[in-house]
């Protein structure tokens, strides 16, 4: 029997049902819920856009929005720049490539929860390894309470996230490198393209597909960051490390302001979609141009 429309619909039925019921329906329901004044599980009454009017004047939400955007920009730029550098190194060094990649990927296998506790320990102000290390190399003037200081807390969290996913990003760039036909690199070598010049004119345009994937993944991943600030700082000091996801969880499951928390979630959804569309159109256009 060949596949026809009828058998295709039947084959897709289980997956679409599961997906519609537990992903699409909750997403649509979230938008509706954000237009009510529901507290806890009891459905509230329709109040239009009042939650949205309230949240643009809510200092907690505006702080979280700013923190999330700043965090995302820093993570996307630094993680991809470092990942690309490491991938270039891995590509040009065949001898230790596979063992180095294994080591670099190790942190990405840990749960974010585990990474959070580990780095909370590393950053701890009293007897923390980072401060001990700074002391050992004579830089004790730099010692600080990394997660307790408003000027370093968010970047400290970003650093632990970048640490976790550096190998992941590099692995994606590397697989793109390994897919470049040898003939291309030989031709570049014959033309005398070496080092930076080869990277600029040969590698960089050819790496466009993996750049799209990496930038998309790191953007989506860091916009929704939750576990790290939730565990490492619980949003503090003051509002300095609260992210949108953190505020959503806090409002919804600590204060049980379901509708208001969900309105923040819908804001996160629109930001994610906007960022996704932006990243995809800009980077896909590059891919086509190359």
């Amino acid at each position: 029997m060949r596949l026809n429309n009828r058998s295709a619909v039947l084959l897709m039925l289980p997956a679409t049902t599961l997906y519609a019921l537990f992903v699409l329906y909750p997403t649509v329901r979230a938008i509706l819920l954000s237009l009510t004044d529901a507290h806890g599980v009891r459905g509230g009454s329709f109040i239009g856009l009042a939650n949205y009017r309230q949240l643009i004047h809510d200092p907690q939400v505006t702080a979280a929005l700013w923190n999330t955007v700043l965090y995302t920009v820093v993570v996307v730029v630094v993680q991809n720049a470092l990942g690309l550098g490491v991938a270039y190194w891995l590509y040009s060094n065949r001898a230790v490539r596979s063992i180095a990649r294994t080591g670099l990927l190790m942190p990405a296998m840990m749960a974010l929860v585990a990474v959070s506790y580990l780095w909370q320990f590393i950053y701890s102000p009293i007897g923390g390894p980072l401060n001990a290390l700074l002391d050992a190399v004579g830089l004790h003037s730099l010692q600080t309470s990394w997660l307790g200081d408003p000027s370093t807390a968010l970047m400290g969290i970003a650093a632990s996230y970048i640490w976790m996913y550096l190998g992941y990003t590099a692995t994606i760039f590397l697989s793109n490198y390994l897919a470049i036909p040898d003939a291309v690199m030989e031709a570049a070598a014959l033309d005398g393209a070496r080092g930076w010049r080869r990277f600029r004119h040969v590698d960089w345009p050819l790496l466009a597909p993996s750049l799209t994937v990496n930038v998309t993944l790191s953007t989506i991943g860091s916009l929704r960051v939750f576990d790290l600030p939730f565990i490492m700082t619980d949003g503090g000091p003051a509002n300095h490390t609260q992210t949108l996801s953190y505020v959503i969880y806090n409002d919804s499951f600590r204060d049980f302001h379901f509708a208001y928390g969900t309105a923040v979630a819908v804001l996160l959804l629109f930001i994610t979609i906007a960022a996704g569309v932006l990243v995809t159109t800009v980077l896909r256009r590059r891919e086509v141009a190359a």
Binding site: F22, P26, I220, L223, Y249, S252, T262, A265, L268, T272
Partner: peptide, 23 residues
């Protein structure tokens, strides 16, 4: 249908977590 599944990759779990809890 395929595009419908692709769209699911961008939805942060935090958007649906409360309705999922209620469901």
């Amino acid at each position: 249908v395929y595009q419908g599944f692709v769209a699911g990759l961008t939805v942060p779990v935090f958007v649906m977590i409360t309705p999922l809890y209620i469901l």
